[in-house]
Every structure is written in structure tokens, then in C-alpha cells.
Design a protein around this nucleic acid. Structure first.
Lengths: 92, 92
DNA sequence: TCTGTATTTAGATGAACTTCTAAATAGAAA
DNA sequence: TTTCTATTTAGAAGTTCATCTAAATACAGA
């Protein structure tokens, strides 16, 4: 919660790529790991940052944990940026 | 240039507040510093991060340096988030 | 229950970030 | 030119970050 956490989460290229992957639907931690040249522990860390920022949420099925996009926080970030942009002094 | 730089710049609360201040129009480095309980050197550093990320640009007048919002990079960030949000699998 | 697979947690390391003080630079004004 | 003001640069200290290896946990299946 908070824009700091949102933008910090989005500032990392691995995390942005994870989110982009999740556009196509939910994926397990293992399926996500398989797409990167990084250890499972590292991906788990990134997923935890994204989860903390509420940019993704998880659902458990069998012994897999599936992750999916949470768009509501994206909406908030969108509004913050739009407000900053829209309200800029006086454009010609 | 690059979303990493944009979001990293936006992840810091001081920098977000600087940008919000600049919504009201251009301000000199000194005027910006005066609004924070931080040294001029620290604000100068944050302005340099914002400038590098192309979120602000400067214009020099007399011996002042004025900063103002650069909305084009905000537009890019907006599109990236909107795309992530909009394209999310199949909503009902 | 035992074994195997999926994922996270713990702890370490090196890099990057935020802030400070002190010094340097640039330009205005006298 | 000398001095003053505005701002940046340099360097240091403490914090947070990204990544790894190794160990722990959770649960499924035999």
C-alpha cells in the first residue's frame, strides 16, 4: 500500500517482466522462474515484493502457488500519474 | 530514459513531492529546497535524478535554475501501466 | 509414513540509494 | 576584480536492494 511501494516494485525490470507475463493469465511460481535465468529463491523474493505492493495476489492449488495480476493498484498509480500530468500549470 | 529510471525516480517520496510542487508551475532549486527539511545538496541530488529520468527539465534565468515538469515521460509511463492493466487476460 | 516436488526463508555479499558536511563552480552585483 | 548568492560536486556513513547457496516448509503421492 502506498505509491512508494508501487513504484519501487515497478522500478525493477525482472518484476516488470513478471507482471507482463501475468497479463496472459495466472502462472505458478515455478512457471515464472522457468522464464528467467535466476534462481527460484530470487524469483520468490520478487514475487514477495509484488505481493507486498499488492500488484499480484496468489491462489493455492494442489502444491502449486499461482500468481495473478491485481489491477486495482495499477488503477491507483494510473490516476496519480494522470493527475500529475493533467494538472500541469497552463499548457498552450 | 527507460521505465526503470522513470519508476525508480517516482518511488521516492521526496521526488514525488517535488513533482507535485511543480504542477503549480516552475520553481527554482532554492524555492524547492525551502519546502523540505533537507539540505540543498540533497534536493540537488533528487533534482538530478528527476532530470536524468527526464521527468523535469531546467531553464536558467539570471543566477537561478528553474525546474519544470516534463509531461511526455509521464505519458509513456501512463501508457505502460494502462497496457498492463487493460490487457489482463479476460475480465468478466 | 516416507519420498519427492514446489516454494519460501535465512543468511551472506556486493551494489545502489539517501543523506549529510564541506568544498567547488557559476554568475550577479558592487 | 572582489564578494555574495545559488546551486552542484565530492566524499563519507548508514540503509536498502538483488542475488546467491543452503536449509526449511508444505503438501502430494506411493
Amino acid at each position: 500500500m502506498g505509491f512508494g511501494e508501487t513504484f519501487k516494485a515497478l522500478s525493477n525490470p525482472v518484476r516488470r517482466e513478471i507482471l507482463t507475463l501475468l497479463k496472459g493469465g495466472k502462472l505458478s511460481a515455478g512457471e515464472i522462474s522457468a522464464r528467467f535465468g535466476l534462481t527460484g529463491a530470487t524469483i520468490s523474493h520478487h514475487l514477495s515484493v509484488l505481493k507486498h505492493a499488492e500488484l499480484v495476489f496468489e491462489t493455492r492449488e494442489k502444491n502449486y502457488i499461482y500468481y495473478q495480476l491485481n489491477t486495482s493498484v495499477l488503477e491507483d498509480a494510473l490516476c496519480w500519474i494522470a493527475d500529475l500530468k493533467g494538472g500541469s500549470s497552463r499548457e498552450t
